[in-house]
Nucleic acid binder design. Sequence first.
DNA 1: CGGATTTGACCTGCGC
DNA 2: GCGCAGGTCAAATCCG
Length: 292
Amino acid sequence: MSDQEFGDFYYHASTTFNNEHHVESDMFRVSSADHHPSSYMSFTGCLQTSIDDYGSLEKAFGLSPSSSEVFSPTINQQVGSNGSEVMAAITPNPSISSSSNEAAGDCEEDSDNNKNKQPKESDDGDKESPKKGNKAGKRKGERKQKEPRFAFMTKSEVDHLEDGYRWRKYGQKAVKNSPFPRSYYRCTTQKCTVKKRVERSYQDPSTVITTYEGQHNHPLPTTLRGNVAALLQPSMFPTTSFPHELFMQMAASPHMINNQAGEEKFSPFQHQVPDYGLLQDMVPSVFLKHEP
DNA sequence: CGGATTTGACCTGCGC
DNA sequence: GCGCAGGTCAAATCCG
């Protein structure tokens, strides 16, 4: 099923479901000498050139130049059955000190993201601003730990792909050098700090780039979508480690189109969502490592 | 009517 | 210091 060369980090895996649905994953490391997370990148399809900096990486993903993400180990997954395609990147512990992505780090220290939401009654006493005070709630000098990030690209006509969780949109911004806006979502579950950003690639408008930040600290909403909820239940994953949880979402989300209402409108493939065993075969072991 | 979305304003960090 | 861009807030609005 796969050939695996973690020596210099090329990974390819392919899996066929029911002789019909074919999934391929590719991952490789650009520079074996570089330990920086950015040394990992997506390969298949989108990258044919050597990428040595964030800029080219962004271009490879069709991101706006300023929306710099540090992509680390990357899966490129292709689901052949319906033409949908997913390419993914994981940032287990981004170490960059990007400014624009500062908010990503907010989640960790404030277990509940209320600090962001209630700046006015914040303890800092800077209530001078009638609208919002220190909305970020960051104390100067404080270094915020960034949440792990997971980004993937999906060929889809809808921006917001259903992934089993409930999200509330809290913002939308125009993206520089891109005609498509970026949308910001937060998990609606209390005390869950997970956020995601959704934007279209300006290079390939048919591609949606979704970036998750943080880890869900709760099971899937039980009211949600029968089989997928069951498939993604933490009981299946006693310790829901972030990467493979999202890989599950990767596997499922391209086929769950914008179904916030909750009813099931899955494509036939959904009923063949791979079980954990299959995923273990599909996903490099590094992605399946459970937290201690 | 309550929850979700929209949207303009505001905040922050970075580069120049 | 200023401008820019990303990210977030929260009032207004929409919708079931």
